[in-house]
Simulated scan of single mutants.
Amino acid sequence: MLTFPNAKINIGLYITGKRNDGYHNLETVFYPVPFRDALELIDAADSASSLSLSGLAVAGDRESNLVWRAYNLLQTAFPKLVKPLQIRLHKIIPMGAGMGGGSADAAFMLNMLNEYFRLGLDDDTLESYALQLGSDCPFFIRNRPAFAAGRGELLEPLALDLSGYNIQLVCPLLHVSTALAFSGVKPAPAPFDLRRIDTLSPEEWKAHIRNDFEDTVMAQYPVLRDIKEQLYQQGAVYASMSGSGSSLYGIFSQGSKATIHSTVPFTTFCSRPD
């Protein structure tokens, strides 16, 4: 079985409060984009499961990998049904880029195991398993636009459709510390209710919607601010950092995109390539 876990972008991101568990409450919109890893399952040749990695480097050991943890989670829950597998993950989505690549891999793994072994789990149950793996993971179970609150796990579906636009992703080869991103944020009520995002056109978002992490992160990495400015200068109707960075995106009319120049190596991808 072969699937292609996709990335997401954050449209708006407000840090609204500090929680008693040490995390922060946030409000954001998750929107899936067709920038994908590849994940394959085949029956194990013997009684031992394995995980092989290719593509971009993945930090950490096998036990900390979210795909491996997703497999172990359902294998522990259903030991008579979930059999040994050879798992192959090819990474295209950069780690630490604010696009949820690891979370997507984990959620797609849960969905694949559910189908492959006919576990019969509904989406609500799969989301509860996904939450054990990470705050962003439940979003990728249904994988459709959603308003997210809490730590990102409280999801409300949104009727948001950007298929008429070109979304250009720019992924500088920088790792932004999440601790750094939070260090300059003072939690406050969201100035705009992102549940109402569909009442505005993307052309209006710049005046109403922001990412609270940008000021702190871009002060530390001015190259990110420069890339954002290039996106706007070359016609983006809206541009933003995704999550805590380092990836950025620009939303363009169909057929348009930016030519980016940067002192930092980067990759770029368009949802509607010419």
Rank of each mutant, 00 (worst) to 15 (best):
S177L: 13
S177N: 15
S177W: 06
S177K: 15
T178P: 09
T178D: 09
T178A: 14
T178I: 07
A179D: 15
A179W: 02
A179Q: 15
A179K: 15
A179R: 15
A179T: 11
A179Y: 03
L180D: 06
L180K: 08
L180F: 02
A181L: 06
A181C: 11
F182W: 04
F182Q: 10
F182M: 08
F182R: 11
S183K: 12
S183Q: 12
S183V: 08
G184H: 13
G184Q: 14
G184P: 12
G184C: 14
G184R: 14
V185M: 05
V185W: 01
V185E: 04
V185F: 04
V185H: 07
V185T: 09
K186M: 10
K186S: 15
P187F: 00
P187Y: 00
P187V: 02
A188C: 13
A188E: 12
A188S: 15
P189V: 08
P189F: 01
P189G: 09
P189I: 11
P189Q: 10
P189K: 02
P191F: 04
P191K: 13
P191M: 09
F192D: 01
D193V: 04
D193Q: 11
D193Y: 02
D193P: 06
L194A: 02
L194V: 04
L194K: 08
R195L: 08
R195Y: 01
R195G: 15
R196W: 00
R196L: 02
R196D: 02
R196C: 07
R196A: 04
I197W: 00
I197M: 06
I197R: 03
I197A: 07
D198A: 14
D198F: 01
D198I: 00
D198Y: 00
D198S: 15
D198M: 08
L200C: 05
L200V: 10
L200S: 08
L200A: 10
S201W: 02
S201Y: 05
S201K: 15
S201I: 01
S201L: 13
P202W: 02
P202K: 07
P202T: 03
P202N: 12
E203H: 12
E203Y: 05
E203I: 10
E203D: 12
E204A: 13
E204L: 08
E204R: 07
E204M: 12
E204W: 00
W205F: 13
W205M: 10
W205H: 10
W205T: 04
W205L: 09
W205R: 10
W205S: 07
W205Q: 07
K206W: 00
K206C: 04
K206G: 02
K206F: 00
K206H: 03
K206M: 02
K206I: 01
A207M: 05
A207L: 05
A207R: 06
H208F: 09
H208W: 06
H208K: 14
H208Q: 13
H208Y: 12
H208N: 11
H208E: 10
H208A: 13
H208D: 05
I209F: 10
I209V: 15
